[in-house]
Amino acid sequence: MAHAAAMHEDVMLPPPSREAGAGVYNEKLGMWIFLGSEVMFFTALIGTYVILRFAHPSSWKAPGQVLNIPVTAINTFLLICSSVTMVKAFAAAQDGLQRQLRLWLLATVIIGASFVGVQVYEYTHLIEKGFVPSEGLYGSTFYTMTGFHGFHVTMGVICMMFVTARAFQGKYTKDDHRGVEVIGLYWHFVDLVWIILFTIVYLI
């Protein structure tokens, strides 16, 4: 209902006068395909973790003994919040609400950056306590998985800043907000990975 007629030439649709492809525009399709490769990258990392835990369970301590669960729980909550601000930004873009789009995007950037900040804080404390990557399998897998997730969040924040800047220039309209949708997909994916990581790394 929000999208009235007269959208036929819309750039958010697949290229016209071509064979029916995936039914979505190139950037979106490209992002989904790229996420497929991200899934496989995390498959290598998470798969390694699962396999090593089966191979050598005694390297792991009970949840809460080494890792700081309260701090991470707050961080998890932060990331979930950033997902909802992101999707709100997308909804605002769809409805052409410029001011809301900008504010939600800005909120996403700030919350995303705080997630990284909290993670750095968490790392420094763990390292002070002597929990380092070379400590054993526990440390190796912990830092690799959460570190690469953090790296993805950082990349996401950088791209999000770029998108936010463009939003402030009014580059995203009701008819063309590809950038917002595409960065959103990446952002939610990173959130989704964290949902899995939080459970298997911290709680199990």
């Binding site: 090593l52 050598h56 390297s59 990557p133 070379s134 054993g136 440390g139 897998t141 690799t144």
Partner: peptide, 13 residues
């Protein structure tokens, strides 16, 4: 950085 993924002496595989 001395992780132990493939290091048999520390349970790595």
């Amino acid at each position: 950085i001395g992780t132990k993924f493939f290091e048999p002496t520390a349970g790595g595989q």
